Amino acid sequence: MGTLHRMKALLFVLIRAFEFELAVPVEDIGDRSAVVQKPFLRFQPNAGNQ
């Protein structure tokens, strides 16, 4: 097994060990229409991209 395969296997094991969740409730996330949609927090719309 080559070094690249070992690195991929290690990353796979490490990533599976974590649990990912949103930092804020889904209801607090909105989007703005522009060239690219940018997420923002609804309770802080002027704080910029989050």
Rank of each mutant, 00 (worst) to 15 (best):
N46G: 14
A23P: 05
L14M: 07
A23G: 11
A34S: 12
F40Y: 15
L41I: 09
V36M: 06
K8Q: 11
V26N: 07
F40E: 01
V36L: 09
E19Q: 15
P25D: 05
F40S: 01
G48Q: 09
G2Y: 06
K8S: 06
M7I: 09
E27T: 08
A9G: 09
S33P: 11
V26E: 13
L22K: 05
T3C: 01
V24W: 08
A23W: 00
R32D: 08
K8H: 07
Q44D: 13
F20Q: 04
R16K: 15
P39F: 00
A17W: 07
A9F: 01
N46Q: 11
A47W: 05
R6D: 11
E21L: 03
A47D: 14
G30H: 06
F12P: 00
P45W: 00
L11M: 03
Q50P: 07
V26R: 12
R16A: 04
S33C: 01
L14A: 12
D31Y: 12
M1N: 14
A34E: 01
G48V: 12
N46L: 12
L41K: 10
F12L: 07
G30M: 04
L14G: 05
T3W: 00
N49Q: 14
P45C: 03
K8G: 09
Q37E: 11
M7E: 14
D28R: 13
R6N: 14
V26D: 10
A23Y: 00
A34F: 02
R32F: 02
S33F: 04
L11E: 04
A17P: 00
E21N: 11
L11Q: 08
K38F: 06
V36T: 12
T3M: 03
P45S: 05
R32I: 01
L41E: 03
